[in-house]
Write a protein that binds this DNA or RNA. Structure first.
Lengths: 176, 176
DNA sequence: ATATTAAATTACCGATCGGTACGAAATGTC
DNA sequence: GACATTTCGTACCGATCGGTAATTTAATAT
């Protein structure tokens, strides 16, 4: 997971992974079937170890402004995300993935958008989101802007610039 | 160029290109030196054949609203961009590029941001951009949002959704 | 028409990829 | 302790990569 995350799933071979992990290749194949099965397992681990944290932020009943600030800070500053997000790296190279991993990526993507939707609905009900746009497209927008910021982190862009961009992008959701 | 553009530079080998173009591999190497030289040449051709069109839109002295609409329509609807933008595909996989191509990508990126800056300055002077933000970061924002939309095109996302996202993202630049 | 040069292609190089056949070591069973 | 079974790793497979040596083809000069 660390290798896929800090570099890119497309740039790390199974040979390299076996070498770094001190595991023989047949062992890896016995445990995961093939590369697709292995990447899917890695993605599952990443989801429960990293992505779950984001979902928690969304489900915690904090203000819209507070939550957006948390998300902005997470995406543009969190040292854990220094090399970007493994999930979005996989999603960006979706066409290169095997069927199992690709399906899992799509599932997680849908889950994420749902989480953003639920968050927006909750904030609308609480009255601190103006709700001047449909929930669905706004959730997708939010999701894509976070993804953009994390992709920029992976490209080692300047943190200040990433934050500026994300701040501006998410300002349309705030009361002005 | 067509192969790199419709697929992805990382997914098309020189062997494959030679086969499709009906050119022997040594001929290609005689003409371009190595893969890096070839990709740089392709990128140059793409810049003058495709990117120049965008720069023209920006330098034409149209209204902010009109220009944004043109850009939105271009990025989310233009059939020429059906498979995304070759430049942004290269930029996304920058770490995989050779030194020549990488440098050219950075040059073009800087040129693009400059073009957006010049455009914003002109619209500020003309009075139809509120200029409530620094030119530099706003230009980067504009640039990245277009890049995001074109990347979504490459991933074959729904055109309506791409347009919605881009429309919302660029709405912060308009008079409200 | 022949000799010389330039151009282009065939056929190959070592490296690396994802994936596996097969023998060696460890474990369990009587 | 002898034998059956499962676990594991070495050493390999064919395919493909970027790149090139060597030979054939084509063009040109004499």
């Amino acid at each position: 997971m660390q290798a896929y995350w800090s570099e890119d799933p497309a740039d790390v071979s199974l040979n390299e992974i076996c070498k770094r992990a001190g595991v023989s290749k047949p062992s890896l194949y016995r445990g995961f079937g093939n590369e697709d099965g292995f990447m899917r397992a890695v993605l599952d681990r990443y989801a429960e170890q990293v992505l779950s944290g984001i979902f928690e932020v969304l489900s915690k009943q904090a203000t819209l402004d507070e939550t957006l600030d948390t998300l902005i800070n997470f995406a543009s500053r969190d040292p854990k995300m220094e090399t970007g997000c493994l999930f979005y790296k996989m999603r960006a190279g979706k066409h290169r993935l095997g069927p199992l991993t690709r399906q899992r990526v799509e599932e997680i993507d849908a889950t994420a958008v749902r989480a953003y939707e639920d968050f927006l609905v909750a904030r609308r009900d609480a009255g601190d989101w103006a709700a001047d746009r449909p929930v669905g497209s706004t959730a997708r927008y939010l999701s894509e802007q976070i993804a953009l910021a994390l992709t920029q982190r992976a490209a080692d862009q300047d943190k200040d610039q990433i934050q500026e961009t994300l701040e501006l992008a998410l300002s349309v959701l705030r009361r002005r």
